[in-house]
Amino acid sequence: MSATAHGAGDGVVLGIVVPLLLQQFGDLDLTSLTTAIEYIVIGAVVGGVIGAVIGWGMGKLYQSRHSQPTPMKPYENP
């Protein structure tokens, strides 16, 4: 699984958790079923997109930091 897919999966879970946390500690109203589902679905979609972008960026960062040095070409006698 690529870093982008991993990031998207983590973002989806975070996008679902955040509205629930906002209801627990903030003023988010999850009284109505349709409104609550809207919050969760929107949170999952937005979180998935943001997580995918972050995962893609983290993958590129990891590759740049752990890139293998290119082997030198052997000396060729004419």
Binding site: A5, H6, L20, Q24, Y62
Partner: peptide
């Protein structure tokens, strides 16, 4: 309460996974 504690732990774990998902590109 059960829900806020579980949700906080879950959010911390997912943030950790998100911060370390770059290793999947290696």
């Amino acid at each position: 309460a059960i829900a806020p504690i579980v949700l906080i732990l879950l959010a911390i774990y997912e943030l950790y996974l998100l911060a370390t998902c770059g290793r999947e590109a290696g």
